[in-house]
């Protein structure tokens, strides 16, 4: 939790949120078998908004963002992403997935492809961009995440932090409108967490719409426009970060914050 403490003093990034709604969840419910994971979730995300979702494990926060690009299917309610309602229509789902980037806890790079091929696969085959151009785009993003020299290597030869930065670059190569982060630093050694968070802070500064599931509270204070606290499938509390951390309203939030901030 201490990796970005230094950034707290730098103060918050200015908000880039506009009034345009890009994600809307309306009364969303989801069950795994008979287990009720998401309960009547209502959430509106504006373009350029940066949201941090936190909560104890099993609270449904990962499931929530996995529903937004349909890696999980919700059973009740509506999810509208970039003007398209998620339903059984496979064409819509493929379209949404190419507009929504996602970064996983376990990186999920393609181990049989070089770093560069990992990055160009989507642009070439989904966006139909010519190879040379896709390569240039990939290299520019690798430079942005500060590892252009690793382009010809394979994922297995990189450290965890480097792999996660490649994963972020891979998502960005698709030029997404929204980025989802599912505990991007949870599988990393402490000294690598910072390099990944730095990349994410830079990304936040470009005005990208981001939803980040994380326990990095320092990071949340720096970039979030809004912090959402989930517990047992409910959105218990949401507020702008200063209020959220300094003046939590609900008992569940207070308990959670006391547990993660004092250890």
């Amino acid at each position: 939790m201490t990796a970005v403490d230094g950034q707290e003093t730098q103060g918050q990034l200015a908000s880039a949120a506009s009034s345009e709604v890009i994600i809307e969840l309306n009364q969303v419910n989801k069950w795994f078998g008979s287990f009720h994971v998401l309960k009547d979730i209502n959430l509106t995300v504006h373009k350029g908004e940066r949201i941090v979702v936190c909560g104890p494990s099993g609270s449904g926060k990962s499931t929530l963002i996995r529903c937004i690009n349909r890696l999980e299917e919700h059973q009740r309610g509506d999810i509208v992403v970039d003007g398209i309602t998620l339903d059984k229509n496979l064409k819509n789902i493929d379209h949404i997935r190419s507009e929504v980037g996602m970064v996983f806890q376990s990186f999920n790079l393609f181990p049989h492809l070089s770093i560069l091929e990992n990055l160009t696969l989507g642009p070439i085959w989904v966006r139909k961009i010519p190879k040379a151009e896709a390569r240039d785009i990939a290299m520019s993003y690798l430079e942005r995440v500060k590892i252009p020299e690793q382009a010809e290597k394979f994922p297995g030869q990189l450290s965890g932090g480097q792999q996660q930065r490649v994963a972020i670059a891979r998502s960005l190569c698709m030029n997404p409108k929204i980025m989802l982060f599912d505990e991007p630093t949870s599988a990393l050694d402490p000294e690598m967490i910072k390099e990944v968070l730095d990349v994410m802070v830079e990304l936040a500064a470009t005005g990208m719409t981001m939803i980040v599931v994380t326990h990095e509270m320092g990071f949340a204070k720096t970039i979030a426009d809004r912090v959402i606290f989930m517990d047992e499938g409910d959105i218990v509390e949401q507020n702008e970060p200063n209020e959220f951390f300094n003046n939590p309203q609900s008992d569940r939030t207070k308990q959670f914050l006391s547990q993660i901030l004092t250890h």
């Binding site: 890696l71 997935r97 190419s98 980037g101 996983f104 999920n108 989507g122 994963a167 998502s171």
Partner: peptide, 8 residues
């Protein structure tokens, strides 16, 4: 999942 998220 990773293949899906890059739109394949």
């Amino acid at each position: 999942e990773a293949a899906h998220t890059i739109g394949l």
